[in-house]
Nucleic acid binder design. Structure first.
Lengths: 126, 126
DNA sequence: CGGCATCCGGCAAGATACTG
DNA sequence: CAGTATCTTGCCGGATGCCG
């Protein structure tokens, strides 16, 4: 068990989940792998997420060193988000999730939901 | 955009997130990669999750075809959960998350939180 | 032991409106 | 356009109790 920065992890995955486990974080990071984006662009890419949630999750990703936020001091403000080096190191993860999701969708449209609701066996072996 | 089984996906990652994006799901699946487990064993592995949440998330994972649930009809009941073939196909993902988490923890204990709270530049280029 | 139903409190997240 | 603050709600998830 590890205690780091006020966080306690039993197994390492928990650290990863802590960083990208947020409701929208993985999705945001995924969109940023297509290149730097302005707040509004991100917003349009993810219609389901509210403006508030978007900035909130971006803040946390920034605090965890995943994204870099650049502010241009102009009169309609312009803010650009991009992945940091650490953020880019998640790329293989996102690629895998993307591929897996595609296969899963194909599986679904072919066979429907699996629902392997499994069988009960007899009362043997404690 | 894909519409499958009452779910709408803009990009494939969303499908993956739908399956393992639940608050505890990734963690549960991760523990199951160490082998089949009884409900109680899982519970002990993850002290933070309540009994209710555990069974609830397990139900959903079962419905999505990730885990297989086997019930032994005996007098103290015994229920064993294990990964399905589909579940095992997530193994590389979990491995990656585990490795990444480990590196992240090391990074943290070395440098503390990154907080790349980035700088503002001047008012150029719209 | 494992699962489910019920109740309920607290927090997550939506809506809105206001600054710069 | 980007972000914050305030208020509000809904549902997530905890606690408890019962059943097989």
């Amino acid at each position: 068990m590890k205690d780091i920065a006020n966080r306690t992890y039993n197994i390492p995955v928990e650290a990863t989940l802590d960083v990208i486990g947020g409701k929208w974080k993985t999705l945001i990071v995924c969109h940023l792998t297509y290149g730097p984006k302005r707040t509004n662009e991100l917003s349009k890419s993810m219609p389901a997420i509210t403006h508030k949630m978007l900035t909130q999750q971006l803040r946390e990703l920034e605090e965890d060193g995943i994204v870099i936020r650049t502010v241009y001091n102009q009169v309609p403000p312009k803010v650009v988000y991009e992945l940091s080096e650490l953020g880019w190191s998640l790329k293989p993860l996102l690629n895998f999730m993307c591929d897996w999701g595609e296969k899963y969708i194909q599986e679904l449209s072919r066979n429907g939901l699996p629902s392997q609701t499994t069988t009960a066996s007899r009362g043997e072996e404690l």
